[in-house]
Nucleic acid binder design. Sequence first.
DNA 1: ACTAATAACAGACATTTGTCTTATTTGTCA
DNA 2: TGACAAATAAGACAAATGTCTGTTATTAGT
Lengths: 204, 204
Amino acid sequence: MAYTREGETREKVFQFMRERILAGRPPTVREVQEAFGFHAVETARHHLENLVVEGKLRQETGKARGYSLPEARGLLYVPLLGRVQAGPLTTAVEEPEGYVPVMQERARGELFALRVRGESMKDAGILPGDIAIVRRQPRADSGDIVVALVEDEATVKRLRLNRKRIELHAENPDFPPIIPPPGEVIILGKVIETRRYYELVAQS
Amino acid sequence: MAYTREGETREKVFQFMRERILAGRPPTVREVQEAFGFHAVETARHHLENLVVEGKLRQETGKARGYSLPEARGLLYVPLLGRVQAGPLTTAVEEPEGYVPVMQERARGELFALRVRGESMKDAGILPGDIAIVRRQPRADSGDIVVALVEDEATVKRLRLNRKRIELHAENPDFPPIIPPPGEVIILGKVIETRRYYELVAQS
DNA sequence: ACTAATAACAGACATTTGTCTTATTTGTCA
DNA sequence: TGACAAATAAGACAAATGTCTGTTATTAGT
């Protein structure tokens, strides 16, 4: 192995580590060694040790494959619920249709995802078929986009609070606001993210 | 440990494995043992072995933390490019602003992400600030939403091909279609997904 | 009650893997 | 050039970890 200065190799080692860690399983020291063609294990370990000192990696000393990214923002897999209905969602979680990866930094509280139906939020840029990622919470602020249970049906609407009176507004002139009698609405949670897939993928 | 039948414990072991694997680092056999309070390592290994036979887990025999999910739906981390400009994007990739996790099954080809600017695609449900995930490709079909380079600026528009003549249509009556002279437009790629975050998160 | 099958337990062993110690090479700077 | 630091190398050791062999419970079915 040629001798290099200025930590060029170290940077490459870091790239390699990040790639492998993000891919699912952190590599062993010897795997790093092989990947870079070092003749000695220690060379690889030396780089890793320095990367830890520099703060670019974190380490659980002694453990196998103990290196991780300090950003550590692992992923959270959020269940995509097919249909959202009264009983199941408020209590247990039914069998999910799939899982959606969400950055953990966004994941305060319990999350779930559902497919948006209807055009009522069109002017807010939420179209039918979009995925809404929701944090389950029983109340929300005025102006938040929420998922509420109206007549045993989950709908996405913008919440307005008028003197503590709940109003659910569509963002589409064709849909009138819903102003239900107090106690008749259950807010399931707040929409924290929406997604739209333009290419359909074969089901697993 | 109580004796259980019907693989109830096994199912829980699988749940545990999936959680941990998705979280970033597969657990060791002994970590499974501890998590379930087994008195013997072999008990944990026995469950794992059976899960492999059942096809619910995959294993790289002998290696530390060698269990993985057969679905193998690893994640891909797509670089979120701050500004998209002429030179850099068509050649090398500039320093990314961050990374966006994308399900690998969607990841044919090379992906990148960028932040949408302007209201020109409002009626297609794409608002300023949205994240567009793009597969880099030099051409696309009529009707696709693409990222194109017009006058050294990247814009998101809907592609229309009129007798092989490229037209870039906004989805907003306030914006006229762009019909550039042939050869003047560079298509950077096709938008395969859009996202919108409703809660800002502290920057790292 | 007897048998078969699965689950759990116990202990030992072998491989993988992290770490340490020491030495050699290579580049930087006075 | 000589001193110093960083990078690389070699080998050994110890801890972590996967695997094996044999035994004991627990349950279902006859």
